[in-house]
Simulated scan of single mutants.
Amino acid sequence: MIEVFFDGLGVVFLWLAVEYCLRRETAESLDEASMVPFADDPEVARRVELATGKSVKAVAPEVVKSGWINLDM
């Protein structure tokens, strides 16, 4: 019986923690955050815009500068 109490207490604590972390977020900021994974690839960003009708603030991929080396770590 005590396990059920602690399980319920854990669920309530998790719910309160998520509510606390998201307290300042708006629907617009959460919607924009959901589009972030598509922002670094302009081709995918365009397809997502066509499919969802939502605009994706795409960022141009980093261009290699002459004399510089891009390292993947």
Rank of each mutant, 00 (worst) to 15 (best):
residue 73 M to F: 05
residue 58 A to H: 13
residue 1 M to C: 11
residue 40 D to H: 14
residue 38 F to L: 09
residue 63 V to A: 07
residue 69 I to H: 07
residue 5 F to K: 11
residue 71 L to Y: 13
residue 43 E to S: 04
residue 48 V to H: 01
residue 31 D to P: 00
residue 54 K to D: 05
residue 23 R to K: 14
residue 28 E to D: 15
residue 37 P to W: 02
residue 28 E to M: 07
residue 19 E to F: 08
residue 4 V to Y: 15
residue 44 V to E: 06
residue 73 M to C: 03
residue 13 F to A: 15
residue 13 F to S: 15
residue 6 F to H: 10
residue 54 K to T: 07
residue 44 V to D: 04
residue 44 V to F: 04
residue 21 C to A: 10
residue 72 D to V: 14
residue 15 W to H: 06
residue 72 D to H: 13
residue 26 T to D: 00
residue 67 G to A: 06
residue 61 P to W: 02
residue 2 I to Q: 11
residue 5 F to Y: 11
residue 18 V to P: 01
residue 61 P to H: 03
residue 29 S to A: 14
residue 17 A to G: 09
residue 23 R to C: 06
residue 43 E to Y: 03
residue 36 V to K: 13
residue 52 T to F: 06
residue 58 A to G: 05
residue 25 E to M: 12
residue 1 M to A: 14
residue 4 V to S: 15
residue 39 A to C: 09
residue 7 D to W: 09
residue 53 G to C: 11
residue 58 A to P: 06
residue 66 S to M: 03
residue 40 D to I: 02
residue 71 L to P: 11
residue 3 E to Q: 15
residue 41 D to Q: 11
residue 39 A to V: 05
residue 11 V to T: 11
residue 3 E to H: 12
residue 36 V to G: 01
residue 12 V to T: 09
residue 61 P to V: 04
residue 37 P to S: 03
residue 70 N to K: 14
residue 4 V to R: 15
residue 25 E to K: 13
residue 55 S to H: 13
